[in-house]
Design a protein around this nucleic acid. Structure first.
Lengths: 254, 254
DNA sequence: CACTTGTTGTTATTGTTATAACAACATTTA
DNA sequence: TAAATGTTGTTATAACAATAACAACAAGTG
C-alpha cells in the first residue's frame, strides 16, 4: 500500500498550507485510496471518527475536492489530485495576485520614508529566510558582489543564481574550499579562514556578503538553524565590512 | 490615504488564504504604509493592541515579511510586497507540487475502482465549483458538446474555453438569448425555453450539458448561490438527457 | 409477525488548540 | 518625574477535534 507514515504526515503538512485542516487532508487522502467509498469506509481508512467524517466531507465538497452521490448510503468520490490541488492553488494564486496589486499600491505611497532608515541595521532569522534574502540581493546587484564565507553555506540553487548574475556583475568569493565544478563567471580565492568554529557540538558559521559596495549582509550563528543575518545600507557598516573584506582578500592571496 | 475599508478587508481575506492571521495581515499592511515604524506606531496605524504587536511581528519575521532593527526602540520594516508575497506564494506552490506528486501516486493505485461507480450520480454545490467543473469537462471533451441553458449562466471565461474547444469538437448550444459577439466554431440555436423561473424573488435556473454523449452535467437552483450540479456517466441518465436535449433541439428549430 | 442486529445520517456535548484582547509590570528614555 | 517601551501572564473567543447519543431504516431470525 502506498504512503509511509512519514510521507503521509509530510503530505498532511503540505495540504495544511493549502488551507486544509488535518481531518480534511486525511479524508481526502482516504478517498484517493478507495473510489466511491461510503462514510463508514472513509472512517475506517482515514481513522477520522465516523461522525466527524460528514462535516469534513461537506467542507471538501465546498472546496470542490469531492463529489457526493445521491444514493443511500451516500457514496463519495475524490477529485483527481491534479485537478483538485490545481484548483486550490489557482484560487490562492488569485488571492496572491490581488494582494500584490493592492499592497504594492500602498507601498508606493508609504510615508516616513526617510527617517534615517538607511542608517539602521536590520535582522532576519532562520537559514531559509536568509538564503532567500541573499538570493534576491544577488539578483538585484548591478556592479559587484563580494562574498566571504564557508563553502557549506552555499546551496546549489544559490550557486546557479550566482553564475547567472556573474554574466553582468563582477563576483569575487573568498571561501575555505570548493567542491564540485568550478563555476563560470566567478573569481574564487580558496583559503581556510578563521571563521566558523565549534561550540557545544554545533558549527558556528559566519559570512560577509557585499553588494555594489552599498549593501551588506552579515550572517552568523549555528549552521543548522537559529542563523542570524544582519543587513544594512549604513555607510559606516558598509565601510567596516568593505575593509574587512579587503583585508582577507590580501591575506588570501599570499 | 490608500485603502478603502472594503478593499482592506478584502485584502485581509486574500492574505489569510496565504497563511496569515488577521493581525499579521493588519500589521504587515500598516508597515507598508509607514516605513521603519516602531511597535507603537504600528499599533496606532493598524489598530492591533500594542501588546499583541510584538508576537505578531515575530511571526512575520519568521515568514520573512518584516525586518527588525537593533536600535532602541526597535524599528520594523516591511519586505516589499512583490518579494514578500512572492516568497509566500512560492513556498505554497512547492507544497502544492509535492502534494500533487504524492497524491497522484496514491490515486493511481486506488482500489475498489469498479463498483458501479459510473452508474452513480454525483452532486456538487456552488456556482463557482460548478463553473470550474464544467470548464474542465469542456476541455476534456473529444467529440461533441451539447448545451441547453440560459445565457446568463455563461461567463466570458467559459465562452472562451468553448471557442477554443470548438476547434476540435462539435458544439451545439440551445439558449434563450445571446449577447455579445457571435462565437466562432459554435452552433447556436436561440429559443426562449421553459427553463428558469422565479420563486421568492430568486431566479431559479436550469441547464443541461452533454459531453461526447457519455457524460452529463445537469444544473439547477437559484442563480446566485446554492446552485446544485448533478454529474453522471450512468447510461440511463445520459440517455434521458440526450433525448431531452434532442427534443428541445427539434423544438427550437421550428 | 415481533424482535433483534447493524448501518446510516444527524445532533449535541466536551476537549483542545490557536488566535485575540487585555491588564499588569519592569525597564528605559526624555 | 512622566511618558513610552518591551515583556509577561491571564482571560475570552472561535475553529477544529473527538466522543456520545439518537432516530430512521434495512436485513435477518426466532
Amino acid at each position: 500500500m502506498a504512503g509511509s507514515q512519514d510521507e503521509l504526515s509530510n503530505i498532511a503538512e503540505s495540504l495544511k498550507s493549502l488551507g486544509l485542516t488535518k481531518y480534511e487532508a486525511l479524508v481526502y487522502i482516504a478517498l484517493l485510496k478507495v473510489a466511491g467509498a461510503t462514510a463508514t469506509e472513509i472512517h475506517q481508512v482515514s481513522g477520522v471518527p465516523r461522525a466527524s467524517v460528514y462535516p469534513v466531507l461537506d467542507r471538501l465538497n465546498q472546496k470542490n475536492l469531492v463529489y457526493v452521490s445521491n444514493t443511500s448510503p451516500k457514496r463519495f468520490d475524490a477529485m483527481p489530485p491534479d485537478e483538485g490541488i490545481g484548483n486550490l492553488l489557482a484560487s490562492i494564486e488569485d488571492s496572491a495576485q490581488e494582494a500584490k496589486a493592492v499592497l504594492s499600491d500602498i507601498f508606493r505611497q508609504r510615508i516616513g520614508v526617510e527617517r534615517g532608515t538607511q542608517e539602521l541595521i536590520w535582522s532576519s532569522y532562520g537559514q531559509d529566510n536568509i538564503h532567500i534574502r541573499i538570493s534576491e540581493l544577488i539578483r538585484q546587484a548591478k556592479q559587484s558582489i563580494r562574498i566571504f564565507c564557508n563553502m557549506h553555506f552555499f546551496t546549489s540553487a544559490m550557486i546557479e543564481t550566482l553564475e547567472t548574475a556573474g554574466e553582468s556583475v563582477t563576483i569575487e568569493i573568498i571561501v575555505d574550499q570548493w567542491t564540485g565544478a568550478a563555476p563560470k563567471n566567478i573569481k574564487i580565492l580558496i583559503k581556510k579562514a578563521p571563521i566558523g568554529h565549534e561550540i557545544d557540538n554545533k558549527t558556528i558559521t559566519g559570512g560577509v556578503f557585499l553588494f555594489d559596495c552599498k549593501r551588506v549582509m552579515v550572517i552568523m550563528g549555528p549552521q543548522d538553524d537559529g542563523l542570524t543575518g544582519l543587513y544594512s545600507e549604513s555607510d559606516g557598516f558598509v565601510r567596516f565590512f568593505s575593509s574587512y573584506w579587503r583585508f582577507f582578500k590580501d591575506w588570501a592571496r599570499k
